[in-house]
């Protein structure tokens, strides 16, 4: 779940993607680990990864695309500098997650799956961070915060 941002540009990542794919192709069930490794490096799985990975794994492009699009946490566009994952699940709902969600969207001026115009923050829904006794919870990059009020969220967003 890295959020390292990277410059785009078709072909720029070809060698890197191909290298990662080759490292994982021989592992049983290696496609998910390969996609994770690509996302860890680039912050997302760019569209040009699909034909490269398909070729190395000797499977169809449709299969690679199918796997990428099935899983919520693979993204196909570059994320903002930080990613805010907001838990929408029941234990957080019970402690005000719905109000936190509307506050966040209003404050950032974006909806889920979007990135602020200045590229600072991407907002993603998430269904449970396992922090359910100290809800509502959010995760910023890979750090979980508990009992997040709208005020506390504002402070967290100011921090970095």
């Amino acid at each position: 779940m890295s959020t390292r941002s990277a410059g785009s540009g078709t072909g720029a990542h070809e060698a890197l993607i191909s290298g990662i794919a080759q490292r994982h192709a021989a592992r049983p069930g290696g496609l998910l680990p390969a996609l994770h490794a690509i996302q860890d490096e680039l912050g997302y799985v760019p569209p040009e990864a699909v034909p490269t990975v398909a070729e190395v794994f000797n499977i169809s492009r449709a299969e690679v695309h199918g796997v990428i699009s099935f899983y919520h946490l693979f993204r196909t566009t570059a994320p903002g500098r930080r990613t805010l994952y907001l838990c929408r699940a029941e234990a957080c709902q019970a402690m005000g997650a719905r109000a936190l969600e509307s506050h966040t969207k209003e404050r950032l001026g974006i909806d889920f799956h979007e990135t602020t115009a200045d590229g600072r923050i991407s907002l993603e829904p998430i269904y449970c961070l396992g922090n359910c006794a100290c809800s509502p919870a959010v995760m910023i990059d890979d750090f979980v915060h508990g009992r997040v009020t709208p005020q506390r969220l504002d402070a967290l967003l100011e921090e970095g």
Binding site: P28, G29, G30, L31, V67, H72, L73, F74, I126, Y127
Partner: peptide, 19 residues
Amino acid sequence: AGAYICGEETSMLESLEGK
């Protein structure tokens, strides 16, 4: 990779197979 259904055992096995 964030799919709730993969907690279902056969779905989990598919995912472990890279699908």
